[in-house]
Design a protein around this nucleic acid. Structure first.
Length: 508
RNA sequence: GUCCCCAUCGUCCAGAGGCCCAGGACGUGGCCCUUUCAAGGCCAAAACACGGGUUCGAAUCCCGUUGGGGACGCCA
């Protein structure tokens, strides 16, 4: 049945020059390695990845490293690391190769130049001998911005010959034809621009290197990209690029321009707003699945339903470019925190253990037995801590008193709860009662504690608080009885005794 | 300045002419649970920027205003 309808669709569209829409889509993420992978780029990459996965297409990673001054291998590694952390695997690109390589733009210069040659040969481009200084002067004279006045397009053959003879440096400009340029953006709908507002942009610099406009189009054409999903800031470049596609006689891909991510002050997200690199979030203890979920819902919606939690695979099943909203989105860290907490709570203990291990090691709390002999016990500790953790790093701090007997007392808490009138005697009685217990489980412990409190005429809450401080050193912890069970009979006894010594009057 | 994009609760979204005196989530406030902190449950406050049209009827369509954002490089 699926085969029939598919063949039918293909057949009915046969002869349509835009058959690319029916082929498996090919999308690309093309970062320029002049910085780390920031959240905006990560979201664009995610949308591309999701779209490719949704339609059984190909996700290409291409590094646009032609700005030699600002690009570095270190940045490339950082971007790859960020994508891997998010789980956005690429089908073609650095380290995996592919049939349309190379995937570093700097290695494709000859192709760009060949394309430029085609453009001049076809009369779509011309040489320009104006110097940057001259252009700057004209621009300033015009008060800020102006469109190139086509001085060099009007050069006579003699004038041109003279410049060539003098070996004047020359750039290549695209000859923008007049008329309207219109395209259907998948998120914005129809966008139309009058070509008179577009200047004859440079496509090859005087040093022979292609500019961005030429190289993206050249690479996208040769890599057979069918859908260009990129930031909103490229929307004004799109008409220029469409003109290039036309001049080249190449099929024009579909465009989807995704709105920018703003900081809380509604300004373009930048370092001022705090962490912008995805790896910074990794270091701060955010889970990649939380980041993916958060980023996916930032500016995109599946349309109906009230679901908020989506796994990467669920997203890949329902993602559609049409669900991207047209307006900019503010990056709200509170919601990221919520997602993170939700994912931490749902993480299986063995998986969680892997992720917290580095921070435990750093805190000197790790021991191989936690995944060996003490595995079950350790996982129970994690289960208690899970709903109380916002970041991965929270576990080390909160698990301290389970893993070490060097208790750090919160002095204010000791004063308030343990050094209360008569509390020493109460705790002594409690310790004795615990010692009588045949089963050291939560229910028995609670019954025993309440009985002691009752007998001594104090509130159970007061005894609970004092015991918590005595055993954990702090006034905040998971439910006391669960904590006591996991700390264990012997250590609870030892800590009660230690607490009594702590509040005992100095010998003398 | 020119061109382009955008405009629903504080924030992220739903809403594609009557289902909307606008729905969900985060955050905020309150209550419940309770032994502290979380988690969880319940409740609440909270928005269609403004002005004109079109229509029997507009958050939804059109125009304008205002506001925000982006682009105007021999950067990508």
């Amino acid at each position: 049945m699926g085969v029939d309808s598919a063949t039918h669709r293909v057949a009915s569209r046969a002869g349509d020059p835009l058959t690319s829409a029916l082929m498996a889509p090919r999308v690309r993420f093309a970062p320029s390695p002049t910085g780390y992978l920031h959240v905006g780029g990560a979201r664009t990459a995610l949308f591309n990845w999701l779209f490719a996965r949704r339609h059984g297409g190909v996700f290409v990673l291409r590094i646009e490293d032609t700005d030699v001054e600002r690009s570095s291998a270190e940045m490339v590694d950082g971007i790859l690391a960020g994508l891997r952390w998010l789980g956005l695997n690429w089908d073609e690109g650095p380290q995996v190769g592919g049939p349309f390589g190379p995937y570093f733009q700097s290695e494709r210069l000859d192709r760009h130049q060949a394309m430029a040659a085609r453009l001049v040969a076809g009369g779509s481009a011309y040489y320009c001998y104006c110097t940057p200084d001259e252009l700057k002067g004209k621009r300033e004279a015009a008060g800020g911005t102006s469109i190139y006045d086509r001085t060099c397009l009007r050069l006579t053959t003699d004038e041109m010959a003279r410049r060539e003879r003098d070996r004047m440096p020359r750039a290549m400009r695209f000859k923008v034809p007049s008329g309207e340029v219109r395209f259907d953006d998948l998120v914005h709908g129809s966008i139309e621009v009058d070509a008179v507002t577009i200047e004859d942009f440079v496509i090859v610099r005087s040093d022979g290197h292609p500019t961005y406009q030429l190289s993206v189009v050249s690479d996208d054409v040769e890599m057979k990209i069918t859908h260009v999903v990129r930031g909103d800031d490229h929307i004004s470049n799109t008409p220029k690029q469409i003109l290039l596609y036309r001049a080249l006689g190449a099929p024009i891909p579909q465009f989807a321009h995704v709105p920018l991510i703003l900081g809380p002050d509604k300004k373009r997200l930048s370092k001022r707003h705090g962490a912008t690199s995805v790896m910074e979030y990794a270091q701060q203890g955010y889970l990649p699945e939380a980041m993916v979920n958060f980023l996916a819902l930032l500016g995109w919606s599946p349309g109906s339903g009230n679901q908020e939690l989506f796994t990467r695979d669920e997203l890949a099943r329902v993602f559609a470019l049409e669900g991207i909203s047209g307006g900019n989105a503010v990056f709200g860290p509170e919601k990221l925190d919520w997602f993170n907490q939700q994912y931490i709570m749902r993480l299986a203990s063995d998986e969680l253990a892997k992720r917290i291990q580095p921070s435990f090691e750093a805190a000197g709390l790790w021991d191989v037995s936690l995944l060996g002999d003490r595995r079950r016990w350790f996982f129970s500790v994690l289960d208690l801590l899970k709903p109380r953790a916002k970041r991965i790093g929270d576990f080390a701090a909160q698990a301290r008193y389970f893993l070490t007997d060097r208790i750090e007392y919160d002095h204010a808490a000791v004063e308030k709860h343990v050094r209360a009138a008569g509390m020493g005697q109460h705790l002594l009685a409690l310790d004795a009662a615990f010692g009588e217990l045949s089963a050291f489980d939560a229910a028995s412990l609670e019954a025993a504690l309440r009985a002691v409190a009752d007998l001594r005429g104090i509130k159970a809450a007061a005894l609970i608080h004092a015991t918590r401080v005595a055993v954990t050193g702090t006034s905040v912890s998971p439910g006391l009885f669960e904590v006591l069970v996991l700390v264990g009979c012997d250590r609870v006894h030892a800590r009660l005794q230690a607490a009594l010594r702590l509040i005992a009057p100095a010998p003398g």
